[in-house]
Amino acid sequence: MELSLWLSLLGACVVISFTPGAGAINTMSNSMRQGWRTSIWGVIGQQIALLIHVIIVAAGVGILVASSPLLFAIIRYAGAAYLVYLGIRMILSKPNVASDGKSTGKIMTPWAMMRQGILVNLLNPKAIVFFLAFTPQFIRTDQPLLLQYLIYIGTVVVVDVLVMFFFFAGTARSFQRFTATTRGAKILNIVFGVLFILVAGMLLLIH
């Protein structure tokens, strides 16, 4: 991959990663409720989903999803339903009050956070369609494909990890003072629960 093309890819990845979405909300929520360092597991899960999306597109399955209204709708509604489920569960959950840096609420295991991260990003058919349109811009069919895809995937994942962990999760740390009280923790649960539900609504309404 030429340097100029890679720099274009890098710039596009930065802009896309900084665009707020379900992944950013999930990362910030994990950071405040489970801790900044622990939130990396959710970020890793989201990257696994991105890898799956790229593999789907590379394998040509993305074309099937994009061209099949029924399949697209099934995935779209499943994704929206999962985000609504996360939102309602967060709103109704017990406030996760921090004391001396330790949480007294429900602690998610690394695997649970990773699984949630995978589902948040994976159950988004628009991501598949996006990568279907985005990937070909940076892949040259007249050059070795494996190395190009490795560079492409590596750039997408590294940029997203840095933005999610150091920006979104890091920014969320400044709000952790709210988790020191039951009232503050409950408000945060409601705020992020509503945000998940709003993203679900956007997923259904924006075509």
Rank of each mutant, 00 (worst) to 15 (best):
P125Y: 09
T38S: 09
L71H: 04
Q176P: 05
P20V: 12
A112D: 12
I44D: 10
S31V: 03
K106A: 01
T155F: 05
V129R: 00
K186S: 10
R183H: 10
Q143S: 11
V156A: 01
A22N: 13
L10S: 04
T182P: 05
L83V: 11
R177I: 07
L205E: 10
V194P: 04
I190N: 05
I91V: 15
L83R: 09
D160E: 09
V199L: 13
A22P: 15
R177E: 11
I139H: 04
I40V: 15
L150C: 14
I55P: 06
A172L: 08
S174G: 12
A12T: 08
Q143H: 11
P136D: 00
V65P: 13
P144M: 08
G154S: 05
I206W: 13
R177A: 13
V191Q: 06
M108Y: 13
A59D: 06
V61C: 03
Y77F: 15
V159T: 15
T38I: 10
S31M: 07
S8G: 11
V161G: 12
V129F: 04
P144T: 04
Q143Y: 11
G62Q: 03
T182R: 07
R115V: 13
A78T: 15
I91H: 05
C13T: 14
L3N: 10
A58E: 02
N30P: 06
H207D: 03
Y77R: 03
F130A: 15
I197P: 00
S174Y: 13
Q176L: 08
S29R: 06
L5Q: 08
G79I: 02
L146A: 15
L198H: 12
V84H: 06
M28N: 03
G42K: 01
P110K: 07
L205A: 11
P125S: 11
E2C: 04
G154V: 10
F72G: 02
I55C: 14
I52N: 10
R33L: 00
F178W: 09
F167D: 08
F165M: 14
K126Q: 13
I187E: 01
F166Q: 12
N124A: 14
M164L: 15
S8F: 01
A80L: 12
V84W: 06
I44Q: 08
I91P: 09
I44Y: 07
F138P: 00
F131P: 01
G23F: 03
V54S: 03
V199F: 11
M202S: 13
K102M: 10
I44N: 05
G62W: 01
Q176F: 01
V163L: 02
T135C: 06
A66N: 14
T104Q: 02
S68C: 01
K106G: 00
A24E: 13
N96T: 00
I74E: 04
F165H: 15
S29C: 08
G45S: 05
I74R: 00
G23S: 15
